[in-house]
Computed example of a mutant assay.
Amino acid sequence: MELFNYSIEEEGLSVEKLLRDRWRLGRKTVHELRMADAVKLPDGGRVRWNELLPAGTALSIRLPEAVSDYVPEMGELDVIHEDPHCLVVHKPASLAVHPNDSGGTGTLMNRVIARFGPYVEHVHRLDKGTSGLVLIARHPVAKAVFDRMLEEKAIRRTYMAETPGPFNKRSGTISAPIGRDRHHATRRRVSPSGQQAVTHYEVISAKDGTSIVQLELDTGRTHQIRVHLAHLGHPIIGDVLYGGHTAGGWYRLHAARLAFIHPFTGKPLDIEDTVKPEWLP
């Protein structure tokens, strides 16, 4: 069982409120932690789950063992951030985040579990051709908390792309619903019947007929940035699926930064990828 310490920062928070309201864990997970007597004081003393605790109370939380079913496979892995609860790693273009089938290999998660197993789970995904940062949970409680933060837009994701330019407006918001393209198995398109999708963009630099664009997402639809930029008339260079010109190699989209308040330490994290594609200035 994995052990970590947590300090109650505010007056009047109980273990029950911490797990259910602050971290918003599911009933099954909370019940399992209660039955395992998993939350205690650092000296091993018991704490009542509904007792309102004073600020500064230290808790020792022991998590049930969990195992991910990824097959370990050694390979190059750039770890940008590491702590007991999460990892942020760089994914190269051409490498899928996870296998499509049980027992599959040749992906980022195979490499991550080989180094950090037995439990690791990605919080979000990048398309195979997109390079950049991927957030990975190191225990099931962290996975549940980060999933909720992602859903509530508490994790800020910043991307960079290179497109044909120039743009008519240096910055703006693309709000256009995205749905499946019935004429193509994997392609998406802007569709009135699709799911809401919002992308904010800002042109950072422009030269030689191309623009470097910084983008942030309010939603996380499949191929969202690729679809929205193509819809705007600026398909990503190399993204032939959405009308971009070939560029020799993968298309030019990079997940450059992740920012969030760490749910277990309370500290702000602003993590920038130190492995940059050659097309970025």
Rank of each mutant, 00 (worst) to 15 (best):
D239I: 13
V89R: 14
I236Y: 05
L232E: 04
F146R: 03
L19G: 03
A161G: 02
A206I: 05
H245I: 08
L229F: 09
S102D: 07
H183Y: 14
R252N: 01
L126F: 04
A58N: 15
L87N: 07
I225D: 02
F116C: 04
H245K: 13
R221Q: 14
H124V: 06
S68L: 13
L25A: 01
T246L: 15
R252S: 02
I212W: 11
F264W: 12
V198P: 02
I136V: 14
P72H: 07
I271S: 06
A255L: 00
H124F: 06
I178Y: 12
W49F: 07
V141G: 01
L135P: 01
I155A: 06
L53C: 08
N5Y: 15
S171T: 07
A154E: 13
R252F: 06
S94F: 13
L33A: 05
L133D: 02
I236D: 03
V275C: 09
V190I: 11
D270H: 08
V30T: 12
L217A: 14
R221Y: 12
H31V: 08
D83R: 12
M1A: 12
M74G: 13
I136W: 13
N100G: 10
M160H: 09
A96C: 12
I174W: 07
G194M: 10
M149N: 02
A247E: 11
L217Q: 08
L126D: 01
S191C: 10
A144N: 03
V79P: 08
S171Q: 15
T105D: 08
R188P: 00
L52A: 14
G129S: 09
P268T: 00
G249M: 11
P166R: 05
R138W: 10
K143P: 00
R189S: 10
I261C: 06
V112T: 05
Y159W: 09
E121P: 00
K17R: 15
W279P: 01
E121I: 06
K207N: 01
G233H: 09
F260H: 02
M149Y: 11
A58Q: 15
T274E: 03
P166T: 05
K207S: 11
E76Q: 14
Y201I: 02
H122R: 12
G44T: 04
D273M: 09
Y242H: 04
E272C: 06
C86Q: 05
I61G: 05
H122A: 15
V97F: 04
R20I: 12
Y119H: 00
E73G: 13
K91M: 10
P268E: 01
G248W: 13
S175N: 05
F264D: 06
D83M: 14
R111V: 12
Y119C: 01
H122N: 13
V15I: 11
A176F: 06
V30P: 00
H223S: 03
I174H: 00
A55V: 11
H139L: 08
I212P: 00
T29L: 03
H98T: 06
S211D: 05
H254C: 03
G238L: 06
A38M: 06
V203E: 09
P177R: 07
K169L: 13
R182M: 15
D43H: 09
D37W: 04
Y70N: 01
L63Q: 10
P72D: 02
H254T: 04
Y159H: 03
R188L: 09
N110H: 09
P263S: 03
E16Q: 10
T158E: 12
H262T: 01
I204E: 09
